[in-house]
Simulated scan of single mutants.
Amino acid sequence: MQFRATSIIFVQKSMLTTQRKQVILSRLERDGQVVAKALSGEFGLSEDTIRRDLRELAAEGRLQRVHGGALPASPATGDFVQRQAINPGEKLSIARRAAWMVQPGQVVILDGGTTCVVLARELPLSLKATVVTHSPSIAVELMNHPHIEVVMIGGRLFKHSMVSVGAAAIQAIADIRADIYFMGVTGVHAEAGLSTGDLEEALVKRAFAAHAAEVVVLASHEKLNAASPFVIGTATMATTLVVEHHTPASATNDLAALGIDIVRT
């Protein structure tokens, strides 16, 4: 009987924890962020208990912990093949709008994201420009563009994202002065900044941004107001954000308030 009573209490506590986590996720979806101190007061529990809940949810990929609480986790953190299947229509719309920004004679950096691969495909065959990339996938897409000179950045191939990373890549980037850099990210947040799922990728993106006159971030809706573990830079690193035409103003108002130009497809 003692064992049974203990088991019942354990199950009840377990259910309460599960219910509490669901409430946390609901608050996150509703408000776009949760604060550990506020949740502690709401549930009448210690902040340590709430932080444990947040750690466990983060380990499950359900949210991204930040100082004092949590933000929505970006779903765009799978490998290259998986990410190609996420919102292909939206990516095409964003890529087409971004392609219009490229002017003849420019030096353009194309990042290694799946949207940038579509952007490379959408560049007109008549365009005369130089494209710098650390993505073999983009280089292949541009093989049939007779007037585009392709400069490949070498380094260690990070197979998860099909891009070159590491010290050799960053060193090569130091010799580039580009007109425009089209950046792929997995998270865009006014406070948490621009982020991605790998540290070396973040460092390469940061180096590209430092060597471009303009930084254009391509962001399908699932990346907005979400965060990933590794910060590329503050949101204001972006001069322009390209989003799908039906993206609500509420999703971009905080970013626009920072002086970022919001371009809808």
Rank of each mutant, 00 (worst) to 15 (best):
Ser135Ile: 06
Ile153Leu: 10
Val118Phe: 02
Leu157Val: 06
Val185Asn: 03
Ile148Asn: 00
His147Phe: 07
Gly78Met: 01
Leu71Tyr: 01
Leu123Lys: 02
Glu149Arg: 13
Ser74Ala: 07
Met162Thr: 12
Asp111Met: 11
Ala73Asp: 11
His160Ser: 05
Pro72Ser: 05
Leu119Asn: 02
Glu191Lys: 14
Gln171Phe: 06
Met101Lys: 04
Gly78Leu: 02
Thr186Ile: 13
Glu141His: 11
Phe182Thr: 12
Ala168Leu: 10
Gln106Leu: 04
Asp179Thr: 10
Glu60Pro: 10
Lys159Phe: 01
Leu123Cys: 01
Ile86Ser: 04
Val66Phe: 00
Arg97Thr: 01
Phe158Leu: 07
His134Ser: 09
Val150Phe: 00
Lys159Gly: 03
Thr133Arg: 06
Leu63Thr: 15
Phe80Asn: 11
Ser126Met: 13
Phe182Ser: 09
Val151Ala: 08
Val102Glu: 01
Ala76Glu: 14
Ser135Met: 02
His189Asn: 13
Gly89Thr: 12
Arg83Asn: 15
Ala192Gln: 06
His189Gln: 07
Ser137Leu: 11
Ala99Leu: 03
Ala190Leu: 03
Ser74Gln: 12
Gln64Glu: 15
Ala190Val: 12
Asp179Lys: 09
Met183Val: 15
Ala167Asn: 12
Pro124Trp: 00
Leu123Ser: 05
Trp100His: 01
Gly166Asp: 05
Glu122Ala: 03
